[in-house]
Nucleic acid binder design. Structure first.
Lengths: 255, 255
DNA sequence: AATCGCCCTTAACCAACGTCAAGGATGCGA
DNA sequence: TCGCATCCTTGACGTTGGTTAAGGGCGATT
């Protein structure tokens, strides 16, 4: 039996026959669990004991691929933390098509917004790669929030950062052509400022295309054109010959 | 002397010669000032005395059109509330073009995100229609926030609502063709669910185009095509013959 | 009246994205 | 080994949005 995280594994399951030297998917590597959770933007800077109170009625979930966590319109009485695997948030058009708004990879959280405004989920959520999640109930979460208002304050600045990220995304969608959004997405996966870089794609190309707002076929064409700029795709990884020059290309063309 | 809010005025200046029977620009009408401010999503549900403490070192500003409030990169030590007029938040591309990320009309606030995360403004802000603003300093605001954590909690849910609005916008940009974004923008300006409606555009077409992520010329084309669907533009207003059918058109075509 | 500036519209052209269709690569199970 | 499913790529084609350029309407200024 091989790992479901095909074609590459970061944390192979027992008896996984997949070659281990392959480039892993792009995901956070894992120190201690609490450490991971505290790195969430939502919980940035929280003390450990406060966190534990917050997590009072949290439950851990092991979800298989294609598990539907919730669908749009459902009342939202919890939010989720992704410890492993991947979850997509998407909308459905009347004709059955789906559009991925966001893909969550370890370690991140989603659904807080819907939960805190005490409404319903605005989107569907589905596991697209076998995942381990933490489901945090609304009740305990909100009550802890009321008891310890400092928590709320911390979360405020975390959310405002989120806010800025979303605004930035809107701007990208409005002013950048697709190839630039793809290029910047790739560049965001590496810390390198110049020279060669080999980045692992966080998810398959279908999902990636949806993330940047284009179709699968268009992504292929974009990558084909980027090839002339020294961006070669190698399996689920992408080799960038010269990160510096690619960054410059993006910057000078309308970013 | 006529009003700068051409070609139509809601609140004519003294001696304004502009005809008064014209349809006003779409903007909130004004009861008491405090009432207005408390209707901000950011301050939703705040008690009046708390609000006054929050506003301790706030100052009122009367800004003429084309006033640059701040530019990207500036350290953000305040945020703004728009009581009248309009302010655009925009980014500049290297070749000097601008892209409007958001237009703020009465009554709304902007810049809190940058201020609370103690960073710098990520965008430029310019008054595009003579405005009266309130500038709230970071220091008093944050200290009040620390003293009264309930305020922070209230703001949390307000921000999460904002968050959802932004997510929705991203989704629109990804899955909807421009004509639908325009149509939905127009529909959002009226409460009518069916029948005829006459809506006043909140800003000129250049800005509107930028808001929905297209160019001025494309907006003209879109409006021309919408004309066949019973959407006629009349000056800075738009008459929708049948709101119900337009809503249905948008809904069935990928919303 | 004449002129200017601003806002908006239209047309022609081109590049680019979506769509449809076909086919290749890979991994898995029979 | 074969068949099948999934994922990816490529080509042809139609549509559409950006670009450029030209011009009209309107108010303000002279």
């Amino acid at each position: 039996m091989t790992c479901p995280c095909r074609p590459l594994c970061l944390v192979p399951k027992p008896n996984c026959t997949r070659p281990a030297n392959a480039l892993p998917r792009h995901r956070a590597t894992g120190p201690a669990l609490a450490e991971l959770i505290m790195s969430l933007p939502l919980f940035d800077g929280l003390e450990r004991d406060v966190l534990q109170r917050l997590m009072a009625d949290a439950t851990a979930l092991a979800c298989e691929r294609r598990t539907l966590l919730f669908s749009a319109g459902t009342t939202s009485d919890c939010f989720y933390i992704v410890l492993d695997g991947q979850v997509k948030l998407f909308a459905l058009t009347p004709d059955g098509r789906e559009s991925i708004v966001e893909v969550f990879t370890p370690v991140s959280s989603f659904g807080e917004a819907a939960m805190l405004s005490m409404g319903v989920f605005p989107l569907h959520a589905e596991v697209i790669e076998d995942a381990t999640l933490i489901r945090v109930g609304r009740k305990a979460f909100v009550s802890t929030l009321r008891q310890d208002h400092a928590v709320a304050y911390r979360m405020l600045s975390a959310l405002t950062r989120w806010h800025q990220r979303l605004s930035g995304e809107i701007w990208h969608l409005k002013v950048q052509p697709p190839w630039q959004r793809v290029a910047e997405f790739l560049l965001a996966l590496t810390d390198a400022r110049e020279g060669e870089a080999l980045v692992a794609l966080p998810f398959n190309k279908e999902v990636l295309a949806s993330r940047v707002g284009i179709r699968r076929e268009s992504l292929s064409r974009v990558l084909a054109r980027l090839r002339e700029m020294g961006v070669r795709t190698e399996g689920n990884a992408v080799r960038i010959d010269d990160v510096g020059s690619l960054r410059r290309l993006c910057a000078e063309a309308g970013a």
